[in-house]
Amino acid sequence: MTEEQAREVMRTVLRPIAPEADLDSVVAGETLQEALDLDSIDFLQFVAGLAEVTRRDIPERDYAQLSTVEGCVDYLTTSH
């Protein structure tokens, strides 16, 4: 998966969870929870969405990496 594809996956997964969220507005280093006002349920739905799209399980210990845009992009681009 390329970086652009990874961002597109994130956008697709976020849309039903946070319809008004703009991924491009998230500053590097900022967590998605802070930047997009995601609560724990939103974030779990986000991770569940990523797991569904990438068809693999995501253990809880990987959550921290998935909480920034860069971390997510790394996660999605390196394992496929």
Binding site: S40, I41, L44, A48, A51, D57, I58, E60
Partner: peptide
Amino acid sequence: LERTNAERPVADRLVMA
């Protein structure tokens, strides 16, 4: 919660809330 979630796929996990 940690033990329970470790055994579950993401979609079935629980949050503290």
